[in-house]
Each structure stands twice: as structure tokens, then as C-alpha cells.
Simulated assay, not measured.
Amino acid sequence: MKILLTGGSGMVGRNLQQHALAGQHQLLAPSSKELNLFDAKQVQQWLSENQPDLIIHAAGRVGGIQANMREPVRFLTENLDMGQNLVLAARASGIKRLLNIGSSCMYPRNREGALQESDILTGELEPTNEGYALAKITVARLCDYISRETPEFIYRTIIPCNLYGAFDKFDPRWSHLIPAILHKLHQAKLNGEASVEIWGDGTARREFMFAEDLCEAMSACIERFDELPDYMNVGLGYDYMVNEYYQAAAEVVGYTGTFHFDLTKPVGMARKLTDVSRATSFGWTASHSLKEGLSKTYQYYLDYLKQG
């Protein structure tokens, strides 16, 4: 198949281009200069000229809690504009299959149990990333509405849990939890720091999946696309405390100091765990352990530092 991949320069996109999938299909990953998703006319023209068999929409403005709190307007408008322009142009161009990459930020905050796909729009969103979540929900619903109106258009959304891995962002201004932890611990080790700060008390729970596992899931989705439900969580189905991520990462990095807590800092949702029943029924489960994923990511980080 000829597959359009948006967001080819991002973490998910770059991992996917190194996956076996890229050798099995013709994967088109134009740069933002070649395909500006903010320009609806250009998107329409590109799709009309290239006519991909399937679209994977992985492009997005992403960042950690600090970035989302600092620039909510940007996270809302940019993600909404990119998604809306692409999905509507795909329909206008007669492209029948589209795989939209959602986010677990789409779910209501502070739910006790695992988050099921039917929970979307049933409660208040987490304020620290509300703009990003609203954009992701809207684009996912747009895909759903198109498929309802015209069932021959199979537009599906998979909802990954939090991700980490090669090609992640390690700059503290933009990084998510795990790359931020690896960077912080590496610097603390180099500088001989006796203690490292953790935001909050470290008991908040998070589900982080290694990015290569998402690529495996996406490959399975593409091969059996017509079997996909409208929405499907792609995650581990289990989580760890923030403190446990710090402890596991310290072992990988070789940091032997202690940790201290800043209870004045925001920590986001107390827990965000996805229910993976649909993915399990679809026949997919993640394969990397936390230690395996952290070790591969830390090696990438070391290579990244060497490259300057």
C-alpha cells in the first residue's frame, strides 16, 4: 500500500519509519515544508495528487506538563487545525482508510478504574493539558462522524497511553516524564548531586509504553484495518508510581543518590490507566518490560548527547 504518514519527524513517526512496516509498504513521510498541515488547500492538493491508500495521522504539537501549562492556546489550535484539515481533505479526496493517533489525555481526570474507550466526554478533563485534549477529542470525533455518515470511509482512532523511547524530547522545557527523568538523573550523576527533586510526593501513577510497541500495534492495525473498532486503547493495562519510574531509571543510569519531594509543584492526574480489553481482543499486547524500554531509551539519549 501507499501510506501517508504525518508527523514523520516526531517520535512516533521516526520510530515507525525504522520499523519493518516501512519496508513492507510505500511509506510517504513528507516534511512540514512539503506538506503544511496548517494550509487546508495545500493538504487537499497533496492528497489529490498522491492518492495514498491509507493515512496515519501522527503529527501533533506535543509536550510535557510544563509546556501544556505555558502554551495552552498553541496546543489547542495547532492540533485542531492539523487534524481537521487532514481529515476533511482525506474525505474530499475519496481516501477510504485513515488511522488517527489519539491520546490518553482525552479521558476524564481522576477516574478510579482503568479508562475505557466509552469514557470519552463523560467527565472533566485534566486542566494542565485541557487544550491538547480538546483538540484530540474533536479530531477523533470528526473521524467517527465521517464513518457514521459514510460507512465506506473507515476512519479509526487508536489511543496510546503515554509513550517514551528513541527520538523523544529530552529538553526539560518540552519533555514528558520519562525522558525528563533520564536527563535529570544523568546530569545528577555527572555533577555528583546527592539528591534529585521529584514533583509532588511521587505517588501519582502513570502508564508509559515503549514507542516500539506502539509501532507493532500500528502494524497490526494496518494489516487488519477493517477489523478495528472506532476507538481502541493501545497501552500496557498496568501502571507504576512516579517514584518507581525514578527508581528503575536510577538503576539504568547508575545514579546512586537519594530523592526529595517538592509538594508545591503540579503533578497532573493522580492516575491515568487505560483498559486494553479491546486491544487484547484484537490480538495485540505490548512486549517490552520497563527495564528493557528504559535501557534502550537511555542508550539513545547517550548517543544523542554524543551527536551534540
Rank of each mutant, 00 (worst) to 15 (best):
N85A: 08
R109T: 11
G60A: 15
S287A: 14
S9Q: 12
R278N: 11
Y231E: 08
P52W: 12
A90C: 02
A59R: 06
L294P: 00
V196G: 03
L228A: 02
R148G: 07
N162S: 14
R156I: 02
E197P: 05
Y300R: 11
G165V: 01
G254E: 01
T138S: 15
F259A: 04
R97D: 03
S295L: 09
P72W: 12
F225Q: 04
I158L: 09
N110G: 11
L80E: 08
G63K: 03
G94Q: 07
E227F: 05
R271I: 02
M218I: 00
L236C: 11
L305M: 14
K169F: 06
E212F: 07
L305H: 09
E207F: 10
I158C: 01
K296R: 02
F259L: 09
V139Q: 05
E49V: 12
E292P: 09
K296Q: 13
Y132W: 00
H183G: 06
A114L: 00
L134Q: 13
A204I: 08
R97V: 03
I3C: 12
L294G: 03
R224C: 06
P72K: 04
G94I: 04
A248F: 06
D119Y: 07
D262L: 10
G60Y: 01
R148E: 13
P229H: 00
S118E: 15
G192D: 07
E149A: 11
Q307N: 12
E126K: 07
L305T: 08
H19K: 04
V87N: 06
E251I: 05
V43D: 05
P151K: 06
V242C: 10
A279P: 00
L302D: 06
Y255T: 05
Q247E: 15
N36H: 10
A286M: 06
W199Y: 09
E207A: 11
N36D: 15
P108D: 01
E212W: 01
G268E: 05
V242F: 10
A279L: 01
E216V: 06
A188R: 10
L99Y: 11
G8C: 00
P179A: 04
D168W: 03
S147Q: 07
V267G: 07
T150V: 08
